[in-house]
Simulated scan of single mutants.
Amino acid sequence: MERKITLQEIEELHRFVRQHYVEFYDVELELVDHLANDIETQWQKDTQLSFEQALEVAFKKFGVFGFSDVVEQKIKQLTNAYYKKSFALLKSFFTVPKIVVTLALFLVLFALINQVNVDTYESIQLGLLFLGTSFLFYQLWHLYRQKQGRKKRGEALWLLHSVLYNLEIWPYYVITFWVIRFAMHRFSVQDNPVFATSSVVFSSLLLTLTVLYLYILKRVVVPQVEADLLEQKKKIVAE
């Protein structure tokens, strides 16, 4: 007689996956399904194999780092998929008629950055560094509050929550640690007008791209991620 996983054993698999630091519910479901199929495949060859022995064999197939590699790979795949969608939309701002908006934004930012003088350099640099660090702590605190809120409400944490965090956080680092770096580089090469102007042009272009990306992120990508998450929840509930 073919041996099948019981409901009690399914619950044990859920506990096992959570104990190995898988916090995303959708990934947990996928891993439980994978482990259950692997165990049943083993039982087809050896019906005397215990559930615990079969689970140990199935888990060893994930390697030294266990489920962590699977989680990281899935986050990377999903994040890259939304990045591609974001950058495809970003390209549209370099076609007519949106390129007019892009050019106007670039010229405004170029003029503003070019107005910065060496006397205000230190103040601006320290100010942006403070803002960037403050934003990092705010994001970490906000993420912690979201997790705690979901736990209190009995809601699960989904992989797309982490993806959304990754999408939103990096533009602020670009502004804080890269735009200011290239913008202020012109003071070290101010004796060479070509290099000085190039630094301002590059920082203005980088800031323009970052601002446009943030606009696309807030207006298009974030609503799309939230819609995808809702659809994923409905699909799992239906199953």
Score class of each variant (00 low, 15 high):
115 Q>Y: 04
133 T>C: 05
65 F>A: 12
86 S>H: 03
81 A>L: 13
59 F>S: 14
116 V>Y: 02
114 N>Y: 10
118 V>L: 10
106 F>D: 01
106 F>H: 01
82 Y>N: 07
110 F>I: 03
102 T>P: 02
67 F>W: 03
135 F>G: 03
99 I>D: 04
131 L>G: 03
72 E>W: 12
111 A>P: 01
77 Q>L: 13
85 K>E: 12
124 I>C: 02
93 F>H: 12
77 Q>K: 14
114 N>S: 13
133 T>A: 10
79 T>P: 00
113 I>R: 00
89 L>E: 14
113 I>L: 14
117 N>I: 11
82 Y>D: 10
116 V>L: 04
122 E>Y: 11
116 V>A: 04
129 L>S: 06
100 V>S: 05
58 A>K: 05
116 V>N: 00
135 F>A: 05
115 Q>R: 12
140 L>P: 02
123 S>N: 08
70 V>G: 01
118 V>M: 09
123 S>C: 05
85 K>L: 12
125 Q>Y: 10
61 K>G: 05
142 H>E: 06
100 V>E: 03
131 L>H: 03
137 F>R: 00
72 E>Q: 15
72 E>T: 13
106 F>M: 01
64 V>S: 10
89 L>M: 12
136 L>P: 00
108 V>W: 07
115 Q>D: 06
106 F>Q: 01
103 L>V: 15
90 L>R: 10
78 L>C: 11
83 Y>N: 09
124 I>M: 02
130 F>S: 08
66 G>E: 05
98 K>R: 14
92 S>H: 13
128 L>C: 08
67 F>N: 02
120 T>A: 09
111 A>W: 10
112 L>N: 08
138 Y>W: 11
104 A>T: 12
121 Y>P: 03
135 F>M: 06
75 I>V: 15
102 T>L: 07
84 K>N: 10
103 L>F: 13
64 V>F: 14
134 S>Y: 07
69 D>E: 15
60 K>I: 10
108 V>R: 01
140 L>A: 07
66 G>N: 06
85 K>Y: 06
137 F>D: 01
76 K>H: 13
76 K>M: 12
94 F>A: 07
67 F>E: 01
83 Y>C: 06
126 L>H: 09
133 T>P: 00
124 I>V: 06
127 G>S: 02
110 F>C: 00
119 D>E: 14
135 F>N: 07
95 T>I: 14
100 V>R: 06
76 K>D: 14
87 F>H: 00
92 S>D: 14
70 V>K: 04
80 N>C: 05
96 V>F: 15
106 F>T: 00
107 L>Q: 04
77 Q>V: 15
120 T>P: 00
138 Y>D: 07
133 T>G: 06
87 F>N: 02
137 F>M: 01
93 F>Q: 10
116 V>H: 01
81 A>V: 11
111 A>L: 09
133 T>I: 11
112 L>R: 06
64 V>Y: 12
84 K>W: 11
84 K>G: 12
108 V>K: 02
110 F>W: 10
100 V>P: 02
60 K>C: 07
84 K>R: 12
73 Q>I: 10
138 Y>L: 08
84 K>D: 07
94 F>K: 05
118 V>Y: 09
61 K>Q: 13
66 G>H: 05
77 Q>E: 15
126 L>E: 07
87 F>S: 01
61 K>P: 03
66 G>F: 02
135 F>W: 06
83 Y>P: 02
140 L>E: 06
64 V>K: 13
105 L>G: 00
122 E>P: 04
84 K>I: 11
139 Q>P: 00
121 Y>V: 11
86 S>F: 02
70 V>P: 02
89 L>Q: 15
